[in-house]
Amino acid sequence: MAANPQALLYSKTHEWTRIEGDEAVVGITDFAQESLGDITYVELPAVGDRLDVEKEFGSVESVKAASDLVSPVAGEVVAINEALENAPEACNADPYGKGWLVRVKLAAKPEGLMDAAAYEAHCAAER
């Protein structure tokens, strides 16, 4: 398991958020990719779509399972990781880097997300 970066925020549904000024980058956590297994398909929103907190914004499929992506933030999608269309395995290999999902222009400051320590305790409880 890769360590969960200290600088990120985490949701109970296993998405991470990196705040960069008035934007945020969102991805799935190492725990999520490990639970899903080999990821074969990622469905992302389009640039310009509006994300709402705790609302579905896409899905991830692995050989054995499919799971909704749940947004940890509210705002407008300004970029999506187009490389995932043909190489979704980046979400397994590098969930906090090349496996990022979307970049969002924040409509509000994110609330209710966990730091790395709280998230690790949350994962331990789910195991």
């Binding site: 297994g37 080999d38 074969t40 050989v63 054995k64 395995e89 397994n92």
Partner: peptide, 20 residues
């Protein structure tokens, strides 16, 4: 291995990963 029940048996689903 990741283990799971299959037909009443505890079986390995994967070791390094299904695709590999």
């Amino acid at each position: 291995a990741k283990m799971a029940p299959f037909a009443g048996w505890l079986m390995p689903i994967q070791y390094e990963g299904i695709l590999a």
